[in-house]
C-alpha cells in the first residue's frame, strides 16, 4: 500500500510539521534512526526554502517502490520566483538570503536522489528520494 502525506507550507510551524510527518513515515517504512534524521533534516531544508523564498508551497511525502525496493520520496513544490542559477544554488556556501548556503547542497548529500526543476516566475520543484538498504 502506498502512503502519501501533503503538508502546506506557509508558516514556520509548517516546517516543523513537515519534518515530523516525514520522520514518522520514514520510521514506519523501516528506515534506521540515522536515515530518519537525514530525511527529517532534508525535509526541513526544503520546507524552509519554500518559506523563505516562495513563500508558500507544499511538501508531499510518499512511500515508493522500485524494483521491489522500498523508499521514500519528498516533493517540494512552490509557485515562487524560481532559481535563476541552479548550479550556483547547489554550491556549498552560496546564499541569496544571508544564510549559510548549506541547505540545498547539504540536502543533496543527505539523500540518495535529488532532482531540481525551476523556472523563473513560475516556481521550483525539488524531488528527493531515499531507499531502504
Amino acid at each position: 500500500m502506498s502512503i502519501s502525506i501533503s503538508v502546506d507550507i506557509s508558516t514556520e510551524n509548517d516546517i516543523v510539521t513537515a519534518r515530523q510527518k516525514g520522520r514518522f513515515l520514514a520510521k514506519e517504512l523501516g528506515f534506521s534512526i540515522v536515515d530518519q534524521c537525514r530525511i527529517a533534516t532534508g525535509i526541513s531544508e526544503l520546507a524552509r526554502n519554500i518559506f523563505l523564498y516562495a513563500p508558500t508551497g507544499k511538501i508531499i511525502i510518499s512511500s515508493i517502490v522500485k524494483n521491489s525496493r522500498q523508499g521514500i520520496a519528498i516533493v517540494a513544490e512552490d509557485n515562487g520566483p524560481g532559481i535563476s542559477d541552479i548550479k550556483l544554488a547547489l554550491l556549498d556556501g552560496f546564499s541569496t538570503s544571508n544564510g549559510l548556503g548549506m541547505g540545498l547542497p547539504g540536502c543533496q548529500r543527505l539523500m540518495d536522489e535529488f532532482e531540481i526543476k525551476s523556472e523563473l516566475d513560475i516556481g521550483t520543484k525539488i524531488v528527493i528520494k531515499k531507499w531502504l538498504d
Partner: peptide, 14 residues
C-alpha cells in the same frame, strides 16, 4: 548531541 544528529550535521556540511 544524538549520534544520528552528529552524522547528519557532518553530511550537511555544518
Amino acid at each position: 548531541i544524538q549520534p544520528a544528529v552528529a552524522v547528519t550535521f557532518m553530511e550537511l556540511g555544518l
